[in-house]
Design a protein around this nucleic acid. Structure first.
Lengths: 168, 168
DNA sequence: GGCGAGATGTTGCTGGATCAACCTTCTCGC
DNA sequence: GCGAGAAGGTTGATCCAGCAACATCTCGCC
C-alpha cells in the first residue's frame, strides 16, 4: 500500500494520485473485501442447501414480502438491482423450476406480474431461515447495536448521495 | 397459478424465519445496496474514462503497488479475489492490450509473473487518480474520521471471523 | 533417488448478466 | 382522436467469471 517503492514513476507523473491513507483504506477496501467474501460464502451455502442463486433468492424474497406474493417485473428488477433483461431470464428460470409464474397485468397490456407459487414460497421461506442465520452469524452478531445503527446511518447517507429513490 | 395468498406469516410456517429488525436490516441490506450501486457507478466511469474493467483495474493497481510491478499469478489472484482461471484470462486480455507481460519464474518452472509494462503503469496511474477521487467523492467524504475508523474496525473484525489470512 | 501429494497455471464448458435493438402498448399535448 | 415519445418486456449478441479436468512441476519422505 501507499506509494510504490522503487520506480513509481521514473519521469514525470501526469497527476499525483494522492493515495488513500490507512484509515481511508481500511474503510474502503475493507468494505469491498468483506462484501465479496461474505456474499460468496452466503451464496455457496444457499446454493448447496437450497439450490438457489443469490439473485434468485433476492427475487423470491422480495416477492414473498410483497402483498399477494406478486410484483411487476420492472419493480422487481429495481428491487433486486438487476437489468430488465437479466430479470426476464431469471424469471424464465424460476418459472421453469416452478417457483414463480408470470401473470398478465389487467390494467396494462404491456405489463406482467411475477407471482410466487406455493412451492416458491416454501422454498424461499426455508432458504431465508438459513440465510438470515448465516448473516447474523457472520456479520450482525459481530456488531453492537450502536454499530449497527451507525452502519445503517452511513448507508442511508451514501445512498442518498448516490441518487434519490435508492434509500429504502 | 394459485399464488399463495398474501399471508406473511399469520398461520403456521415450517420454521419461523425470525426476520431482521429495522436496525439489522439497515446495517445489512444497506451494505449490499451501497456496494452494488457504488461499484457499478465506479466501474462505469472507469470504463468510460480509461477503458478498464473494475477487475482489470484491481489487478493493475495491485501490480503497480508491488515491488518491480511484478507479482506471481497466484498471489495476484488472491489479491484481486479472482479464481485462477479467471485471472489467467484477465491477464491474457491485459497482455493483448499491452498493459502487462508474462514472465517465467526462474526459480519455479511452473510459475509466472505478471509484470506491469510502462503503458500499463501510466494507464493505471491515470485511472487511479480518477477512481480515488470518485471514491472520496461518493463515499469517504461522507464519513467523519471517526466513522472511517469504526468502519475499518468492523471490516477487520468480520474478515477475521470469515477466515484467517483475509484481513490485510 | 524415485514416488506420490500438492501446487501452478491453462483449457473446455457452462451459466449468468449486460447492452443495444426491437415490438407492443400507454400517455399526453395538440 | 392522433401522432410522438416514453415505458414495459423480450431477444440476440457478447462478455466475463467459475468449476472441473488437465499437464507440468516441486518437494518431502521412505
Amino acid at each position: 500500500m501507499t506509494a510504490t517503492t522503487d520506480d513509481q514513476t521514473p519521469s514525470a507523473t501526469p497527476r499525483a494520485p494522492r493515495l488513500l491513507d490507512a484509515r481511508e483504506l481500511a474503510a474502503w477496501r475493507g468494505m469491498l473485501r468483506t462484501h465479496v467474501l461474505l456474499s460468496r460464502e452466503l451464496e455457496a451455502e444457499l446454493l448447496r442447501d437450497h439450490g438457489l442463486q443469490l439473485s434468485a433468492y433476492e427475487v423470491l424474497m422480495h416477492l414473498s414480502d410483497a402483498p399477494g406474493g406478486r410484483l411487476r417485473l420492472a419493480e422487481l428488477a429495481e428491487l433486486a438491482i438487476l437489468s430488465r433483461s437479466g430479470l426476464t431470464r431469471l424469471i424464465d428460470r424460476l418459472e421453469r423450476e416452478g417457483h414463480v409464474i408470470r401473470e398478465r397485468c389487467e390494467s396494462d397490456a404491456r405489463g406482467f406480474f411475477a407471482v410466487l407459487t406455493a412451492a416458491g414460497r416454501s422454498r424461499v421461506t426455508a432458504a431465508r431461515a438459513d440465510y438470515l442465520e448465516a448473516v447474523r452469524d457472520r456479520f450482525l452478531s459481530l456488531l453492537s447495536a450502536e454499530e449497527q445503527e451507525q452502519l445503517g446511518a452511513i448507508w442511508t447517507r451514501v445512498l442518498a448521495e448516490l441518487g434519490p429513490g435508492l434509500v429504502p
